[in-house]
Nucleic acid binder design. Structure first.
Lengths: 216, 216
DNA sequence: TAACCTATGTAACCAAGGTTACAGTATGAT
DNA sequence: ATCATACTGTAACCTTGGTTACATAGGTTA
């Protein structure tokens, strides 16, 4: 009960303008609060998805994997988002097509699949939320496609750094070249090369284990 | 009325197992039948979308555009599909993010946006259809991303040809190297080069204005 | 302090595919 | 038949980014 009332508090913070009061109460009742630490895996490719995450705090990165097991960052989710990908899997009873990893310490509510269909019929606000999520995710996928298909690695790297700054709300990024290389599906050498170029152009400052973004 | 009853006939052919009888009747009432010829544009980027297409016959290709105005094929839609992209735009009152062009002569029903929300609340079958469409489109977008991010041009070309054969139900493809280059967002020279390689390997037979697929 | 591990910098090389240029060929129009 | 046009084949060259190899630097641990 204490748990439940604390959840309502958190929910009201970001979702009170979106969901009806009764819906928020239902969410607090059936949902379970979950905290994940930075770097922790939330969903793995091939896993069956039995609950849907609703993001309260923090951020999550969504990744795709190739046959060699190498990754590619698709997009970030932050507060107020849900993963339409997961949602899609829930409804279709299918396995996850993506991997989700906490970009930072994150707080989320897990909602059991069974409620999806029920709430979709019952609450207009839920319906809208779901449709909007789908819309956002499709848009983000298009963005990902644009980036991969139309941009060179240097531009992709710049966007990546900008995105990180925005998501993490800091301009000193705690990240190694290798980690960036994984996210962008390229090699460490390539990233080091391009980062050095950006540094020479005065856009960033390189340090061991971190990158200071100056003017991107 | 003749129009309407003919529409019900067409609808029953592919959607009777999916939609309730009353829904099919409603669709026939408010929808308008539309025929488009091969190559004709159905939706353009930046246009406001005021109706949603339901595919009865034929096939449509969905394209994305870069800043230079060059295209990239995302996926094909065929009978029984709807464009979740469009759907998404309808609900969000936003402009189209994609271009849709008839891959062959195509018959579709256009449904006014206003009905979306109404039917979503009213018909479970419609809700499922919409969610399934979103699911398919997300899956196809992931597929597109995999293809672009993880495959070389020769593999992409092979997949493209295979897809075309399946969609068009023929193995003599009426297409020029330039057209393929547009769809794959590359140059004609590259396509000619790779096609020649495929021919030498006995997988296809090249002719002017057409490609015979032998064994891909 | 020495040994060790991880991160970074850089050179040299390679492969994929984009670009330019031009020749040859089929097709339809005049 | 001549011409114009669209399509195809191919060579030569360039750019991007992937690979290998190795040196150096910072930080940790024995």
């Amino acid at each position: 009960m204490i748990e439940s009332s604390r959840m309502i508090e958190s929910l009201n913070e970001f979702y009170s303008g979106i969901f009806e009061k009764e819906l928020i109460e239902e969410i607090a009742q059936v949902g379970t609060l979950k905290r994940v630490r930075e770097g922790e895996k939330i969903i793995e490719i091939g896993e069956y998805v039995k609950s849907m995450p609703l993001l309260l705090e923090g951020a999550i990165k969504i990744l795709r994997e190739d046959k060699e097991g190498d990754e590619l960052l698709l997009y970030f989710l932050s507060r107020g988002d849900t993963c339409a990908m997961t949602l899609s899997c829930c409804l279709g009873q299918s396995k996850s097509e993506i991997r989700a990893i906490a970009e930072m310490d994150t707080k989320l509510i897990m909602i059991p699949v069974e409620k999806m269909e029920e709430w979709t019929a019952k609450y207009k606000s839920w319906r809208n939320f779901i449709f909007e999520s789908y819309h956002s995710r499709l848009t983000e996928m298009l963005d990902a496609i644009d980036t991969i298909a139309f941009l060179n690695m240097d531009e992709r790297l710049m966007r990546y750094l900008q995105e990180k700054v925005k998501i993490n709300q800091v301009d000193l990024l705690q990240v190694t070249h290798q980690e960036i290389a994984y996210d962008l599906h390229t090699s460490r050498v390539v990233i080091s090369r391009l980062l050095k170029k950006l540094e020479r152009e005065g856009m960033i400052k390189l340090q061991r284990n971190s990158i200071k973004v100056i003017n991107l």
